[in-house]
Design a protein around this nucleic acid. Sequence first.
DNA 1: TAAATAAATGACAACGTCGACATTTTTTCT
DNA 2: AGAAAAAATGTCGACGTTGTCATTTATTTA
Lengths: 338, 338
Amino acid sequence: MVSIKDVAAYAGVSDKTVSRVVNREASVKAATREKVEDAIKELGYVPNQAARLMRSNRSGVVGIMTDVVARTANSVELIGGIQDRLSEAGKGVLIANTGGTEDGEQAVWRTFQEHRLDGVLYATMFHQHVTLAVEPPPLPTVLVNCSAPDKPDLPSVVPDDFEGGYVAARYLAQEGHKRIAYITLNPQIVAAKLRGAAFQQALEEAGVPINGDWILAGYEGPVGAETMRAFRVASELLALPDDERPTAIMCGNDEIALQVISAAHAARVTVPDDVAVVGFDDFKMISTNVVPNLTTVGLPYYDIGKRAADKLLRLLGGETIEIRSDKMACPLVVRDSA
Amino acid sequence: MVSIKDVAAYAGVSDKTVSRVVNREASVKAATREKVEDAIKELGYVPNQAARLMRSNRSGVVGIMTDVVARTANSVELIGGIQDRLSEAGKGVLIANTGGTEDGEQAVWRTFQEHRLDGVLYATMFHQHVTLAVEPPPLPTVLVNCSAPDKPDLPSVVPDDFEGGYVAARYLAQEGHKRIAYITLNPQIVAAKLRGAAFQQALEEAGVPINGDWILAGYEGPVGAETMRAFRVASELLALPDDERPTAIMCGNDEIALQVISAAHAARVTVPDDVAVVGFDDFKMISTNVVPNLTTVGLPYYDIGKRAADKLLRLLGGETIEIRSDKMACPLVVRDSA
DNA sequence: TAAATAAATGACAACGTCGACATTTTTTCT
DNA sequence: AGAAAAAATGTCGACGTTGTCATTTATTTA
């Protein structure tokens, strides 16, 4: 591998002068610079970051640690936001996943330390509470899409699920719906709880009665291994006589909403005229392809990623972070299903 | 930052002995090893990979270069497969995206070289032909989901779109369908061409007549900025009288299939009894949530990623790669829509 | 024109680790 | 016990780069 010394010899200058050219330092005569640049091009020299790092002890790389492999549509947005912000700042990105186990997480922390990463974005695929496998984190860390209730000084960025649920429920109430059902995510999930509470509060404030029997789980089974049952649940709701049937169904996510719309079709109930459907997450693959297009609450994962990256960068820059936990608004995207 | 010398001083041994302990070399007395390990734990020492790399000039990290940010459902599977195989081999993964521009790609190649990556997986989000921005690639490279027709010696792994299209079309023919329509992807895309050719061949072989008017584009506009028109196209097909209407519709992907099913519902045409629908890609989010569940051709992106990673590892291990271009089979996933 | 100042370049050490080789300690053998 | 062999540990330098400081060269000033 060609090194700075090879270039120096080839150009007939000292290695330090080559270093100056490479790092665009001011005091190099134009003629010298040119000579060196030619040599660099000629020999195909590329500086060795590892050697640089050895002197500076700063790698210029940020690590993303995720629980499950980055395999869901959410995570993809999230990572996109992170990447965009970090590459603006000239930082590299190293992605590693823990497999969701404590051992795995410890191994990743170690790798990150070995590579002297500048900082870490600790991201989960679902909004949840977490406990780090290494306390305190050995590198500057920002939590993404999760929070650590027992470590309130760890910065975090999460979606405001309560606000999202509130906005959706209030919208349905404002549209005049009086009989509103809610098919939820797996109830153990943080997001499900927050959205459920928001649903209740919004309807109470709007004076819309809440029917406990119409708050139904769209999934069954343990978190991570649940099976879908939204189609069945929705079919039962929609089989009720016209004047007893819900006129609106709020859904824990867009996949549930797709099943609800499928159930409505099967039951010959028209969306949105007979029953309005509101989704959650705005998975474009579903929301913009099903007809009618889905009215849904967008989860701003791209922005969450971007914000988290920004927060980490400011942390690394030595800024004091005032607001520890950012909650990002979830906008209602009105399309045709409600 | 605590270095090997700090540990050595603390444990009262030489730095080389610490090095031996860290690298699990045999010839260290148990008592010494223990002393050193205590010191390591006490001081929180973590070896510096950069310094190691400086001696060995091998980073143990493989780069993934993608065109568009890893943001589609495909890419997520792909990267998952790559990651799983590489972490088996103890390699790290560095993901970077080129933004689809030549400058961006050059910058990424440079970064990869600066970090002395062991090798590169060059992945695209859609199966396509590519020309590298740097020829020949300065690091060992395997193309993933794309191929370079003018550089036949570059190893690549791609889905066998022809075979997938063939299997799907033959299945419909075997089920006895005589009137089969095909709503395609953007016709410029490689996958669309291969699948289209397979569609024609399969029907010819089965003796099913091909109606040119029934091969219709589901998208319009340039690649990357197309708009969906599958719902409209399908609605027109399904508005035909019962005995002139297609009895089966093959779709370029699952998003198209979802629109076709939506159109069928709107037209009060039953799936699969009146019209069978076959998708492509097996996007689980759609295929397992829409009712009826989608019969579709799976794109083995996870396996493609895994295979590509494996291929690169063998390349790095000095093995000679006999088969330059791997085509991965696309299995038909039979569910309820056909 | 010589001295004074500024600009350009170079010599050398240091970063953290490990390979090559040297030295010391322990064990085995006669 | 003393010599020989084996095991354990240490010394030193090199990897590629850049910071510090010294030196050379060019430019300005009196």
